[in-house]
């Protein structure tokens, strides 16, 4: 017979944290990644290592609020909840709409997308571009890390066993003035895992680039972002000169190293990533007419 499985579902976050402090557990939020990753064959429960601890019902993890210009998003907000929340920026909503399909969006959480750390996680390119910070909590207190430091590799994150991701903080996101795009390239129009993801942000002041950021998904073990390359464009006049665009594209050409897999090819991924970058940089939308 099946061996005994321990599972916890506490009413409060503090109880959850103290259990996590005692014992290494598998955290389940919406479970849409966990249940697939540890899936058994038909008719048998998944084989999840460690005791499991359910967190998606914890109200402490489901709040969305504004703190000055920063936006705080509870880790266990489901995609559907975020789509209905007026505080969530439109580009993030657009990215969320490309994720899976309604039933998955009713369960999958933003925190899960981050902690799952898949190269194809669809919210990740935007979160990188927003310079998202993550609030992690344990019995020992809180700490805040940049998302780019937290995600370390394919399904590898810098989380201590006793920590829970509590909030995702998008600094200054509620400030006006930036032009942000997200593009997902999948094999079909719903229920598709990204072959390439791209997020770009640009803020123009006085016809010059004041801030610019890009992140690429599904073209490497983690999101590809380079502050050094972004810096090359600061202060450049808009519209950008062809040579400026070419320089940035060439720089990314050097650092994007995708792979072949069952979904696409390395050549395709790279070419499309650079196409989307080039298009973004030459796009008319943010430029003075």
């Amino acid at each position: 017979m099946a061996e005994k499985i321990t599972a916890y579902r506490f009413d409060r976050l503090d109880q959850t944290l103290s259990q996590l402090n005692k014992e290494n557990c598998s955290i389940i939020a919406g479970g849409t990644d966990v249940m697939v990753l540890h899936k058994s064959r038909r008719g048998v429960p998944p084989k999840i290592p460690n005791p499991v601890i359910f967190i998606d019902h914890l109200s402490e993890l489901k709040r969305v609020y504004q703190n000055q210009k920063d936006l705080h998003i509870g880790a266990c907000c489901t995609y559907s909840e975020l789509l209905e929340d007026p505080l969530i920026p439109l580009p993030l909503k657009n990215a969320i709409k490309t994720i899976a399909a309604p039933a998955i969006r009713n369960r999958g959480t933003l925190g899960g997308n981050i902690c799952n750390a898949s190269p194809a996680g669809d919210t990740l390119p935007l979160l990188y571009v927003y310079n998202a910070k993550l609030l992690l909590r344990s019995v020992n207190g809180d700490r805040v890390v940049a998302i780019s430091d937290f995600i370390q590799g394919v399904r590898r994150v810098g989380r201590q066993h006793n920590e829970i991701l509590v909030e995702i903080i998008l600094p200054s996101v509620l400030e006006e003035g930036s032009h942000v795009v997200f593009e997902k390239v999948g094999n079909r129009n719903a229920d598709a895992i990204a072959k390439v993801g791209f997020a770009g942000l640009i803020r123009v002041n006085d016809s010059r680039v004041e801030d610019v950021r890009f992140a690429f998904g599904a073209v490497g073990p983690t999101m590809v972002r380079s502050v050094d390359i972004e810096k090359k464009l600061l202060g450049k006049p808009i519209p950008l000169a062809d040579s400026d665009v070419a320089e940035v594209v060439a720089a990314f050409d050097k650092i994007i190293r995708p792979i072949d897999d069952q979904r696409s090819t390395a050549i395709y991924r790279k070419k499309v990533a650079l196409n989307l970058l080039r298009y973004f940089l030459s796009s008319k939308q943010y430029q003075p007419n």
Binding site: A101, N187, R188, N189, A190, D191, A192, I193, Q262, R263
Partner: peptide, 8 residues
């Protein structure tokens, strides 16, 4: 199914 990609 999604890696193969029949139409939705």
């Amino acid at each position: 199914i999604s890696d193969y990609g029949p139409p939705t």
